[in-house]
Computed example of a mutant assay.
Amino acid sequence: MFLVVGLGNPGPEYAGTRHNAGFMVVDRLARELNIPVGRQVFFSLTGRGQLEGRQIMLAKPMTYMNESGRAVASIMRWHRLTPADLLVVSDDLDLPVGRIRLRRAGGHGGHRGLQSIIQHLGTNGFARLRMGIGRPVHEGTDVVDWVLGRFTPEEGPLIEQAVAAAAEAVRVVVTVGLEEAMNRFNAGPVR
Score class of each variant (00 low, 15 high):
residue 1 M to G: 14
residue 2 F to G: 05
residue 3 L to I: 02
residue 4 V to Q: 00
residue 4 V to C: 05
residue 6 G to Q: 07
residue 8 G to T: 07
residue 9 N to M: 06
residue 10 P to Y: 04
residue 10 P to L: 11
residue 11 G to R: 00
residue 11 G to F: 00
residue 14 Y to R: 01
residue 16 G to C: 09
residue 21 A to S: 10
residue 21 A to N: 02
residue 24 M to H: 02
residue 31 R to D: 14
residue 31 R to P: 01
residue 32 E to I: 08
residue 33 L to W: 07
residue 34 N to A: 15
residue 35 I to K: 03
residue 35 I to V: 12
residue 38 G to R: 13
residue 40 Q to R: 15
residue 41 V to K: 15
residue 42 F to M: 08
residue 45 L to S: 07
residue 46 T to Y: 02
residue 48 R to L: 01
residue 55 Q to D: 14
residue 57 M to P: 00
residue 58 L to M: 10
residue 59 A to L: 01
residue 63 T to G: 10
residue 64 Y to P: 11
residue 64 Y to A: 12
residue 65 M to K: 04
residue 71 A to M: 05
residue 72 V to E: 02
residue 73 A to W: 03
residue 74 S to W: 00
residue 74 S to L: 09
residue 76 M to V: 01
residue 76 M to I: 00
residue 76 M to R: 06
residue 77 R to C: 01
residue 77 R to D: 12
residue 78 W to K: 04
residue 80 R to V: 06
residue 80 R to L: 06
residue 81 L to E: 03
residue 82 T to E: 13
residue 82 T to D: 06
residue 83 P to E: 07
residue 85 D to Q: 12
residue 88 V to R: 07
residue 89 V to Q: 08
residue 89 V to M: 02
residue 91 D to E: 14
residue 92 D to P: 09
residue 97 V to D: 05
residue 100 I to W: 04
residue 100 I to D: 01
residue 104 R to I: 11
residue 105 A to N: 10
residue 106 G to E: 05
residue 106 G to Y: 03
residue 108 H to Y: 09
residue 110 G to E: 12
residue 112 R to K: 15
residue 113 G to K: 08
residue 114 L to D: 11
residue 114 L to V: 15
residue 117 I to S: 05
residue 117 I to K: 03
residue 117 I to T: 00
residue 118 I to V: 15
residue 119 Q to Y: 14
residue 121 L to D: 09
residue 123 T to W: 14
residue 125 G to T: 08
residue 125 G to C: 10
residue 126 F to P: 07
residue 126 F to D: 05
residue 126 F to R: 00
residue 127 A to E: 06
residue 127 A to G: 11
residue 128 R to S: 09
residue 128 R to V: 09
residue 129 L to T: 11
residue 130 R to P: 03
residue 132 G to L: 02
residue 133 I to L: 04
residue 133 I to N: 01
residue 134 G to R: 02
residue 139 E to I: 08
residue 140 G to Y: 04
residue 142 D to H: 11
residue 145 D to Q: 08
residue 145 D to M: 09
residue 147 V to T: 15
residue 148 L to T: 13
residue 154 E to W: 03
residue 155 E to S: 00
residue 156 G to S: 10
residue 157 P to E: 13
residue 158 L to R: 14
residue 158 L to S: 10
residue 159 I to K: 12
residue 160 E to H: 11
residue 161 Q to M: 08
residue 165 A to T: 05
residue 167 A to I: 12
residue 169 A to P: 15
residue 170 V to I: 08
residue 172 V to I: 15
residue 172 V to H: 03
residue 173 V to I: 02
residue 174 V to Y: 01
residue 176 V to Q: 15
residue 178 L to T: 01
residue 179 E to Y: 10
residue 182 M to S: 03
residue 182 M to T: 04
residue 187 A to N: 06
residue 187 A to F: 13
residue 188 G to F: 10
residue 190 V to T: 15
residue 191 R to P: 15
residue 191 R to I: 12
